[in-house]
Design a protein around this nucleic acid. Structure first.
Lengths: 192, 192
DNA sequence: TTTATTTCTTGTCCTAGGACAAGTACAATG
DNA sequence: CATTGTACTTGTCCTAGGACAAGAAATAAA
């Protein structure tokens, strides 16, 4: 049984046989570094469960700066919920930051699962509310914490990101310039 | 038929008779200014549809500062999704900013509706993905926009907030101090 | 009315982090 | 091999917005 899917779809209402159905509905896909799984302006028609590698989501701000909105690593879901389920064009780009292995499922297959597996909608609700929660935490952190604190937090909570992503993307994710991040890291070293 | 509920539960899969069932499951409640509908540490067991007035959600940061996380106005939902559906203590406070009239529904009643009305889960998914989207926009705005721009955006998009909320709450919502907000508003006036 | 309490403004001074530009160190590609 | 990027660091100088403190002005409470 696929470990990534088992981890991602872990939920009290999903049985082992549900998991098999779920796994059967996913397709294994490989992505090469820089491949896009979704671009701004297109309507999403699938989502991706990351088994290996990392995907980055980003937007351009009014001044044309590339702003990283998220990093999706192992055992996480790369998805634009709004675009996929309400069939509107995405506002974001989703691009492989490294070569990746993913389990992909398209909307049709998902809808079928959704109707045949009772617990899946509870699972979906749980997943979304966790995402909402995580995003809320991030927003609060952007307001109340200094850049140094935000960096420390990221380092503590998501060390894999620091290993896989170039600093400039991490900088924009933290809401600072890459120069500032560089200086913050220099300070961090001194204090060790 | 209650206008707030009609507006809130508007969805292609919800029929007029669904709406009647939904409305019947809600209870009308009045809140007085400063009443709490949820406090940090408590598990939510209902949510509130605002008909009149405004509710504010907030947290305290590490330094004890009161940080506004959201304003919920007319025809919007005051809810801690995570707490309500996953039965964990809330991280936030939800307090009436003004006297309010609300339609309230508790978890039990909601679950019953949820199982008896087919379209309700699609509605919920749509609602959540919209919330996720709005929050994402806010996070990006915190990163890419200046305080002045964030204020201008709030003024354009949610003028009711400016009318109903004290500036200090708006300031913390925008991620600045009330002094700064005051100065921003002064500048704004000059340029008119 | 008088006294508090909260809301908002304003002043002075200071700092985190931006803008821009130059320099180093690897990788990738012809 | 030379070359063109891409990633990262560092320097100088500058500005948005914070900290703190002291008024006004408006609400509420006594």
């Amino acid at each position: 049984m696929n470990a990534t899917l088992t981890s991602l779809y872990r939920h009290p209402l999903l049985t082992a046989s549900d998991l098999e159905l779920i796994a059967a509905a996913h397709k294994s896909v490989s992505l090469k570094k820089r491949d896009f799984i979704l671009k701004k302006g297109h309507v999403a028609n699938a989502y991706f469960c990351v088994e290996e590698g990392m995907i980055r989501s980003y937007v351009y701000d009014y001044a044309g700066n590339d702003i990283t909105t998220g990093f999706i690593g192992k055992d996480e879901l790369a998805i634009d919920v709004v675009s996929l389920f309400t069939r509107v064009p995405s506002e974001e780009y989703f691009q492989a930051l490294t070569d990746c292995k993913c389990q992909m499922i398209d909307l049709d297959a998902f809808q079928q699962l959704y109707h045949s597996i009772k617990g899946l909608n509870e699972w979906g609700r749980a997943w979304m509310s966790e995402s909402l929660f995580a995003l809320k935490q991030r927003t609060i952190s952007m307001i109340t914490d200094s850049a140094t604190e935000r960096y420390a937090r990221l380092e503590a909570q998501h060390p894999q990101i620091l290993q896989q992503a170039p600093l400039k993307y991490i900088a924009s994710y933290l809401g600072i310039t890459d120069s500032s991040l560089s200086r913050i890291r220099k300070e961090r070293c001194k204090s060790l």
